[in-house]
Structures are given as structure tokens and as C-alpha cells.
Amino acid sequence: MEELKSNSVSCRDYHPLYAPASAGDIDAQIELGIKYRDGNGVEQDGNKAVEWLTKAANQGSTQAKFNLGYMYKDGDGVPLNYSKAIEWFTLAADEGDMNSLVWIGILHQRGHGFTQDFSKAAECYSVAASKGDSYGQYNLGNLYRDGKGVPGDSHKALELFTLSAEQGNELALEALGELYIAQRDYEKGKEYLRQAGANGNQNALETLKKIEAVQEKHRIEDSVRKITCPFCGKKSVWKAKYCHGCTARILYSPARKYEWMGIGIAIFSAVVGVAMDPNHLGRVLFFSFLIWPLSLILSRLFGEQQAFFRKD
């Protein structure tokens, strides 16, 4: 009997798993194969992982066939072999495993083991998506968004991303966020990116930080008062001495409306004063028209200003 090599526990502790696996228990064979694949409690050994998973696959285990395909497509503990990966994925997919079907689509899309073919990838994703597989929905959404293998259709992409995101797929949440950002719906886009980040997608959090930084920059820029040059049409920051777009000088002076307001108040005060006390006409007129220069002084100190562009 083959002995189980362990780097953390004794072989005796693994007898409850090893014995049934040797006796043909499929679940024990899969568990043992995965432990050898990952080095989880035993010395990592890709060959032993393949041996035990193959025993389970030969007894009809779809899960074992998927795991074998996954090992061969990455070269995970075994030599990279797309042909074997496709063989095992196909067997599992024929038994209804949507994860395997999605990976066949990915291999078609990447041109790994197949001639690159986005249409065939879309066919695989479409079947998986129709069965409710979140990665099938997400991958098919990407193809519709990019117009690869299928006609470009942002509405279809949005629909598929939403279906996938509703199942908690962090990649779909990120894609939804980016799609809404591209459509200038920033608040909804940022919310989906936050959800993706909460589900462990660090890339979505980085994208969110960049978007918020850009928004803050625009908010600050928009809060700065600007004036438009009549000569070149460029905007300059208020209080700049020269136009940012040409050589025009910028001069500032109190807005004329305050001068007219001062004159109006002075005339009104004089009329009312005379009407109320005609015997002291001179005094009334003196104090009334004193309001005008006072209003000019106050407008220069505290009033609104206007800018003039002048080319010397």
C-alpha cells in the first residue's frame, strides 16, 4: 500500500482518509488529491494529486475532472498541457459542469489549446450564462461590451453584468461600476466599485480612489472664480494680472452698479429731506449728496469688482 507523506501530522492521523480513498471512496480520493495538489497537511506532490483525482474521475466524478482540467491549464504541480486541460474540461462540461464550460470558453478566447476564436468563446459563455453561471454572465458581458465575437451592445453588457453582480461576483461589480462611470453616472458607478471592494476586489478600490481624487480636483477647480478673455476665449483665474491664453492685461475696478446705487440713494435722500424740511434746504442737500462719495468709498473697499482685458 502506498504510504502518505506528511509534513505536519502522522500517517496514522490520515488513515481515516487514506483507507477509504484506497478502497474507492470518491469523496476521499478527491479530498486527498486536492491536499496533495495544495500541500495542505501533506508534502505537495502534483503527480500524487493527479493520481488520486484521476481515480475519482475514472469513477465518474465531475468535480475531479474539473480539478484535473484546472491543474493542467495552469501547470499547477504538473507540466502545462492545454490538450489535457481541454480533454478533462470537456468531459466535465458534457456532464453539465458550467465552470468547465466557462474555462473552455476562456481557452478559446485566449487561444490556448485552440485557435483564438471569440465567437466560440461567446457560445460557451452563453450556455453557461443561460444556466445562471455568474462567470458565464460576466465573461459574456465583457464580449458584448467590447464587441468581440458578438455585436457590441452596452445595454446587453449591462444586463449580463447586473445578473452576475446580483450573485456577488466582484468582477461583475467592478465592471458595472466602470460602465456607469463611462456613462457619467458617477454616484452609481462609485457605489458598485465600493461593493466590489467590499467583496475583496482591490483593483476596484484603487479605481474608486482615482475617480474620487479626480472629482475632488475638479470640485476645487470649479470653486475658483474665473474670467473669460474676449480676445482669445481662454479662462483665467480671478485676480490674475495677465490672460492665461494671450498677452492681454487684466485690470480690475469696482462694478459701476455701486456708483449708480450711490447716486440714486443721494437723490432719493435729497428729495425726501426737502419734502420733510424745506426750511433747511442747504443742510439737507449737503448731507444727502455726502452719501454718494461715501457709497463709492464703501464699494471700493467691500463691493463687487469687475475685470477688464486690455492689450497694450
Rank of each mutant, 00 (worst) to 15 (best):
L32P: 01
G33K: 10
G33A: 11
Y36P: 01
G41W: 09
E43T: 14
D45R: 00
G46V: 00
G46S: 06
E51L: 12
W52V: 04
L53V: 00
L53I: 01
L53D: 02
T54M: 10
K55H: 05
A56I: 07
A56G: 08
A57Y: 15
A57S: 14
S61V: 02
Q63C: 05
A64T: 06
A64F: 09
K65V: 03
N67V: 07
N67A: 11
G69D: 05
M71Y: 01
K73T: 08
D74P: 01
D74S: 12
G75M: 06
G77S: 08
V78T: 12
P79C: 07
Y82H: 13
S83Y: 06
S83K: 14
K84R: 14
E87W: 05
E87V: 04
F89C: 14
T90C: 10
T90P: 10
T90Y: 01
A93R: 03
E95F: 00
E95K: 10
G96C: 06
M98A: 14
M98Q: 14
L101I: 07
W103Q: 15
G105S: 11
Q109Y: 14
G111A: 13
H112T: 04
G113N: 09
T115E: 15
D117G: 09
D117Q: 07
F118I: 05
K120Q: 15
A122L: 10
C124R: 02
Y125M: 10
S126K: 09
V127T: 13
A128N: 12
S130F: 09
K131Y: 14
K131A: 15
G132R: 11
G132Q: 13
D133C: 05
D133S: 03
Y135C: 06
Y135A: 06
G136T: 03
Q137F: 11
Y138P: 03
Y138F: 15
L140D: 14
G141P: 12
G141R: 08
N142V: 12
L143C: 10
R145Y: 10
G147T: 09
G147C: 07
G147F: 00
G149R: 14
G149N: 12
